[in-house]
């Protein structure tokens, strides 16, 4: 899973089906990248996920907690509406996780401007996003 350095903030786009061990690797990779780059923020884009279960929710919450201990803030972006409905019913509202609507909006929290191409708005997390 690639972790992109956008100059002071990191961008992680989770794509498609994620095996449990891949999720754990992701947590390690992101936390290590926060430490080595000294990033202030970590944007986690989950618009590519059609399902988040309690295992993955816990991994995401742990990434955010580890990032916070390293003085970086994690922001979750692009959750699909069907995933949000399911997570709430499951009882997992992820109170420790900050959310933003788009990657650009999340980046602007950290003073990084990303110009969004109006023709192809990425990472809005619709249920029509292809997997």
């Amino acid at each position: 899973m690639p972790v992109l350095d956008l100059g002071g903030i990191l961008l992680v786009s989770i794509q498609g089906e994620l095996a449990d061990n891949a999720a754990v690797d992701l947590a390690t990779d992101v936390t290590t990248a926060v430490s080595t780059t000294g990033a202030r923020g970590v944007i986690i884009d989950i618009s590519g996920l059609d399902m988040v279960d309690s295992f993955l929710a816990r991994v995401l919450a742990e990434v955010a907690a580890s990032a916070r201990l390293l003085a970086a803030q994690a922001v979750l972006v692009g959750m699909r509406p069907s995933v949000a409905i399911t997570l709430v019913e499951l009882g997992l509202t992820l109170p420790g996780l900050e959310t933003s609507r788009t990657v650009a909006e999340a980046a602007s929290r950290f003073g990084v401007e990303i110009r969004e191409d109006p023709e192809r708005r990425a990472a809005r997390g619709t249920d029509r996003t292809p997997t």
Binding site: D20, D50, M51, V52, D53, S54, F55, R80, P81, S82, V83, I85, T86, E89, L90, D127
Partner: peptide, 17 residues
């Protein structure tokens, strides 16, 4: 529907785990 699919897949993932 999509929400129902997602609920069932999520429940399946929890229970299979």
């Amino acid at each position: 529907g999509l929400v129902q699919q997602t609920k069932l897949v999520t429940a399946a993932s929890e229970l299979a785990r």
